[in-house]
């Protein structure tokens, strides 16, 4: 059974968004996504200062077997990337809700309303 946390936003591409403070969010992939991928061996992240656009690819998470695009759940500027994942990509499997990929300054906070809450995401993955 996949773990889903309350209080996060979710995308249909199996990413979570956690609001830290006004307009600043963390983005990662869900427990369901990491289990589907299997052993994560590499995370290809954008650079600080890059702009990401909701619905567009911003990087990739790679398991032994396959590369999977990361699709931006929100738009904004990447203000930090999680360097720990470069050396320890397995953290994505071990603690998917701790292993954030990027910290983003939102350009349009209203986009959060287009994402799913925990209940809606639960339905999404049980379909």
């Amino acid at each position: 059974m996949s773990k889903i946390l309350e209080g996060l936003y979710y995308s249909e591409d199996h990413e979570w968004v956690k609001v830290l403070e006004d307009n600043i969010v963390l983005v990662g992939i869900t427990d369901f996504a990491q289990a589907e991928l299997g052993d994560v061996v590499f995370v290809d992240l954008p650079e600080e200062g890059d702009e990401i656009v909701q619905g567009e690819e911003f990087g990739a998470v790679e398991s032994v077997k396959a590369a999977s695009d990361l699709v931006a759940p929100v738009s904004g500027e990447v203000i930090e990337i999680n360097e720990d994942l470069v050396g320890e990509p397995e953290k994505v499997n071990e603690e998917p809700y701790e292993a954030w990929f990027i910290k983003v300054k939102l350009s349009d906070p209203k986009e959060l309303d287009s994402l799913l809450n925990n209940k809606a995401y639960k339905e999404e993955i049980s379909e």
């Binding site: 299997g38 052993d39 061996v41 398991s63 032994v64 077997k65």
Partner: peptide, 8 residues
């Protein structure tokens, strides 16, 4: 089967 627990 593609894997049982982990490919690694």
């Amino acid at each position: 089967p593609i894997s049982y627990t982990s490919i690694k």
